[in-house]
Write a protein that binds this DNA or RNA. Structure first.
Lengths: 347, 347
DNA sequence: TTGTAAGCGTTATCAA
DNA sequence: TTGATAACGCTTACAA
């Protein structure tokens, strides 16, 4: 089966390859009748231009890369939705890379992306990362980079984040307002941008309420469910005064639920829980989880739009294009007073 | 800043481009000292081969495409995890495309992928698809295709599925065994492979128990949460005899929860619910959801392995390579007898 | 062991 | 308005 390429079209039409190419690209210097002939045959033969050839020639891959820690996570999958939406609107393709929170993986992905395979990158850094020279060198190669949610401040480019500090401050205050006196904070990593900011919001809210900060009440998680549940249980046994948990990521809020269940502690009677989360089922949990919900889809979309503005205008991204979106505190049963409601039944 | 390519390396080393290329590819006909010199400079300059150039020359893109309806869904995101894992092990890149259950989108994605951008495709078809000629033409172009979960039987290639029929049969029987007499079935689409099989399992289980099949109890959903909840509520009001729901996809199980809550119906006292689901939080719901859980990660991994076997050996994929994995029925509170448990508290 | 040159499929420059 | 030709960066016969 002969391949369908420009040469083939040109031969069958008795035209030059150049003319066919220009006709398909709708250039002004080709006559309408010729364009029509070319297009007709092209669609008849299902011609599709070879992206590797045109990519090589034009130095454009029409592809962006997305680097995230995990995809089995509502926050990131919603963000991907937003990114894909914008990419498609721009006729771009999306390569996806998962770091699984692992520094080594992030470094190797960065190396892969340094080759011109993508015209731009959107990244949310791994919790295991401490050194960022692999990202610096992408920046140096002139590949536009946008950070979202988990950023690396050391690079002058746009960051799309949420108001983590304020949200954490509010979330903590909400726990205190709900009667908690001994609130533990579950953190993913101190070295992560969001880790720092969310911890700081917690610390400052305690201080604002005149409650001393207690280092022992801050748990740094492993991002391993079984281990993290274990850690939380140990803390609960060691510190029976704990009456509230503020989880800085969704998975840790779920670990709290499991830990409390294992220890037969009631949420919210014994322990109140609040967590950053994009769980669709938050309101269906037992009890419904009070959440700080980030606009994940909007974050992905916004970040992608910034990236594509840079790609299409061919200008570098300035740090001043950074955007901070607002998260929302949604109060539900896990921080409420527990009430038994008797409801009217329809049958 | 001069670009770092083979020419640049060759010039600085006083070697030919060909020699440098062969040295970097570790060919046997290059001397060790030369290889060392080349590699040293390459790594010093951070040389990365241009994938578009080598792809064009070798006719290999080192990329696969994944086409799925949604990513904000545990089943698909876990499958992606499995796919990405295998792709990375093979040094391949993963392009991702979301159809949002829309036929038109699937067609346009198929056209994009017909161009040689990918060496193989993994797809789970959209519920809106009825015609599959867009996929047939990919097959005709010689692009290896593997279907997972939602397949298109019309194409002779491998399908990676689960034992949908048996699972549905069992799930339905479990509801009947739990005392249900009027079980409704929530289906995504009759035209979908999984839709048909899951419906059939339900129908046959009813029959096996001597319960007549009632067309009115089968709901074909819109994949739109608000609408689907509305539809379920209307059905519940119209048919007060309904005492069980079998949801063929996760989102519909959640819609049942919402609908029952809106109507003040208790699960499992008034209505029992079972659903296909990969929700991590199934056990934390109120009540915990009885699920048919598919081995989503294994499905993605298995499907990718089949694809890569075909790509590396350069042989077409035979239908005989199809694999059927087993789903698991996990019984939880949503189909149980409701019991109020008083637990010992640790404090 | 290394170099020369052709070619992958496309686009851009220049000439006709 | 069209055609011939070079070039994108790489790999691979074939020559030396």
């Amino acid at each position: 089966m002969k391949p369908v390429n420009l040469k083939r079209l040109a031969e069958e039409l008795n035209l030059s390859v150049a003319t066919v190419s220009r006709a398909l690209n709708d250039r002004y210097d080709i006559s309408q009748p010729t364009k029509d002939r070319v297009r007709e045959l092209a669609s008849k033969l299902n011609y599709e231009p070879n992206p590797y050839a045109s990519g090589l020639r034009r130095q454009k891959s029409k592809t962006i890369g997305v680097v995230i820690p995990e995809v089995a996570n509502h926050f990131f999958s919603l963000a991907i939705n937003g990114i894909e939406e914008v990419a498609r609107a721009n006729n771009y393709h999306v390569l996806i890379y998962l770091t699984h929170e692992d520094y080594e993986r992030e470094v190797s992905v960065a190396r892969l992306l340094a080759s011109g395979r993508v015209e731009g990158i959107m990244i949310s850094v791994a919790s295991g990362s401490q050194d960022y020279s692999h990202l610096d060198s992408l920046q140096e190669k002139g590949i536009p980079l946008v950070f979202f949610d988990r950023v690396h401040e050391g690079i002058a480019t746009a960051n799309v984040t949420t108001n983590d500090y304020e949200s954490s401050f509010e979330a903590t205050r909400h726990l205190l307002d709900s009667g908690c006196r001994s609130v533990a904070h579950l953190n993913l990593s101190k070295s992560l941008s969001i880790g720092k900011r969310r911890l700081q919001g917690y610390v400052d809210a305690l201080q604002a309420s005149g409650i001393p900060f207690d280092e022992e009440l801050v748990v740094h998680a492993q991002a391993n469910k079984v281990q993290d549940i274990e850690t939380i249980q140990e803390l609960l046994l060691k510190r029976p005064d704990i009456d509230g948990f503020f989880a800085s990521v969704e998975s840790l809020a779920m670990c709290c639920y499991e830990a409390c269940r294992n220890l037969h502690l009631s949420i919210p009677n014994d322990i109140k829980v609040i967590g950053f989360s994009n769980l669709e089922t938050a309101s269906l949990l037992d009890p419904p989880l009070t959440t700080v919900t980030q606009p994940a889809y909007a974050i992905g979309k916004e970040a992608a739009q910034i990236l594509f503005r840079a790609i299409t205008k061919n200008v570098p991204i300035a740090a001043s294009q950074s955007v901070e979106l607002k998260s929302e505190l949604i109060v539900r049963g896990s921080t409420g007073a527990s009430v038994d409601v008797v409801v009217a039944k329809i049958r």
